[in-house]
Design a protein around this nucleic acid. Structure first.
Lengths: 166, 166
DNA sequence: TATTGTTATACTCTATAACTATA
DNA sequence: TATAGTTATAGAGTATAACAATA
């Protein structure tokens, strides 16, 4: 009922995407995939994928955060976080230290190397964002940031609940 | 510089997501992941994943589309399309027929079974969309659909070009 | 030579279950 | 018993290279 593919005159994409094109979920998936590809193109030179950058950025802003806190913040299962953190540790970017009060907990901090490189990474990400989201106006970008955040926070608040250590 | 995590009073998500929270790409990734989870929850009963539904929906609206056309429409590499179409064929939902004029081409059509079930699948998808995007107003949903479509079409027009049979 | 479709392969992301060590 | 972290494993998405058949 919504949107009927108005780009039939471009020549390249001329088939009828029909009902699919009006689905918000479809557009969201396509946009996210394209964004990931662009991100990889920009940060491929420093070998950082979106999750890895998210981890490093979050640890930078929350020095000494535990691995499980990190899992909850990023909605990454603890079993999947292990190899991610391990690789960053192996590369000398992240340090795991046992918490003084609770020896089960691993506190995470950025190494001096990571701290020195973080500004450069953030510049690459900013460049990626500027280019990829350049088709939108500053106002549109702000609206979209707010709406997208509302979407996943609402969804995870409803059904994503305390499902495991996720 | 944008957004500083204003939800510190919720109790659950109290850490400083800091700069990460202001990144549009991060919000896009999180929203898309949450959407995929919700989609799986709704269409898990009929064993259809997002790509599979996209294929069936597109074939329904473009009867006799070729496999490579489908690849271009959905930006799925031909090598990855093979098992997707094969599985749908195995399940009796899709039929491959050799094109009369060009025997390299496989034309795709929905089977009678798929045609009979398509309305029900579309209802499930509609229900998923209504629930997942329910946090947004109708106006916000329309704006977002348009902006997201603009994003990936622009991006793939720039660098996604004719990269292989993608 | 170029295109369609295929196979084989690999890497990443995601998900579950079961284990350990601590509490 | 509950939590933090780990291991093992499996499914799905996505990428490349090389091939056969056809144009």
């Amino acid at each position: 009922m919504v949107g009927c593919g108005r780009d039939d005159m471009t020549g390249k994409r001329s088939s009828t995407r029909g009902q699919l094109d009006g689905l918000l979920g479809y557009q969201l998936r396509r946009a996210s995939a394209a964004m990931a590809a662009d991100f990889a193109g920009e940060l491929g030179s420093v070998q950082l994928r979106p999750v890895q950058f998210a981890i490093l950025s979050l640890v930078a802003d929350n020095d000494g955060i535990s691995q499980s806190q990190l899992c909850r913040e990023l909605s990454v299962r603890k079993a999947n976080m292990v190899p991610l953190v391990s690789e960053l540790e192996r590369r000398g970017l992240l340090a795991r230290t046992a918490a003084p009060g609770d020896r089960r907990v691993h506190l995470l901090t950025l190494t001096a190397l990571a701290q020195s490189q973080l500004p450069a990474w953030r510049k690459l990400v900013a460049r990626h964002e500027t280019r990829f989201f350049g088709a939108l106006t500053a106002g549109e970008r702000d609206v979209m940031t707010r709406l997208l955040r509302k979407l996943w926070t609402t969804a995870e608040g409803i059904d994503g609940g305390p499902a495991e250590g996720r």
